[in-house]
């Protein structure tokens, strides 16, 4: 694989992982515009653990993810008190605070950035990414995943059926943090340099776009969204000047044509329909 494609592949994996970190809370009805903040925490903490503490890289990635998950858990309580657009603002504000903290932390080189020693090539990144994707698909088939989607659709009714909405949302937010931490760790060990400037609001916006345009109803959404948005700009490189105009128009078009995202439950049913006709369960006489 050429260096060019390896680079794109690594970015693609990073985008997919971070998209899933935003998808998990989104699937239970919470909009997170602070992905960059969590990614930064994962990048710095895993980089620090592998470089300064000298831990093996995979262990550092895992610990970085756990640190990020812990931060997500703690801040989920104030954040989940907010709703809708206020939650968007709260998560955005969190990411700004994170940026402000890291830019002043001398231990991480402050604004100059933080060099990370260990290198993660695609042999590490791709399996990690696949692991995240499989985990999220699995989670969404469990009763917890069902609870998340129920809380997303109608929280009061989900509660009436016994779902602990707060527990469900805190869990989704925390797991989202863990996944974002993995994304940050991938970044840190692939670029071997962590600069807080890379984890800015644009990253948070783009990742949220991947998820919302890919669709929050199924675990396919973020995958399709991230792949589409990572590869599309590459395909548009041919017309460099018009690239961002075309890109913007595409986003608007998709929001008009498929307001619930590219991949919806109904669409999956249509695709599955002709191939997998499940036999109706037999009527049981009683």
């Amino acid at each position: 694989m050429s260096g060019y494609w390896a680079g794109i592949m690594a970015i693609l994996c990073f985008n997919i992982v971070v998209a899933y970190s935003v998808f998990l809370p989104a699937a239970s009805g919470q909009l997170n515009l602070g992905a960059a903040g969590f990614v930064a925490i994962g990048a710095y903490s895993s980089g620090y653990i592998s470089t300064d503490l000298g831990a093996p890289m995979l262990l550092a990635i895992l610990l970085g993810a756990l640190v990020t998950g812990f931060v997500a858990f703690v801040i989920s309580f104030p954040i989940l008190r907010t709703r809708g657009v206020y939650m968007v603002l709260a998560t955005f504000a969190f990411a700004e605070v994170v940026q402000g903290v890291f830019i002043n932390l001398e231990v991480f080189g402050a604004a100059a950035g933080y060099p990370v020693a260990a290198f993660a090539d695609l042999n590490v990144i791709v399996p990690l990414t696949i692991g995240v994707v499989v985990f999220v698909f699995f989670l969404m088939t469990t009763r917890l995943g069902l609870s998340m989607r129920a809380v997303h659709d109608d929280e009061p009714v989900a509660t009436l059926f016994g779902v602990h909405a707060r527990f469900t949302q805190v869990t989704a937010f925390t797991l989202g943090g863990v996944v974002a931490g993995i994304g940050g760790a991938i970044w840190a060990h692939n670029f071997n340099y962590v600069e807080i400037q890379n984890f800015n609001i644009l990253l948070s916006i783009f990742v949220l776009l991947y998820v919302l345009i890919g669709g929050t109803q199924t675990a396919f959404g973020p995958l399709i969204g991230a792949v589409f948005f990572t590869l599309m700009p590459e395909a548009l490189r041919v017309s460099e000047e018009w690239r961002f105009v075309i890109f913007g128009i595409l986003i608007i078009l998709m929001m008009v044509v498929r307001p619930e995202g590219l991949v919806t439950r109904t669409m999956l049913d249509r695709i599955k329909g002709p191939f997998i006709r499940r036999k109706p369960a037999p009527v049981v006489d009683s």
Partner: peptide
């Protein structure tokens, strides 16, 4: 729950 299937809605009732 509009985005859940019929059987998923019923499984919510088992929660």
């Amino acid at each position: 729950m509009p985005h859940l299937s019929a059987v998923e809605n019923v499984m919510l009732g088992q929660h």
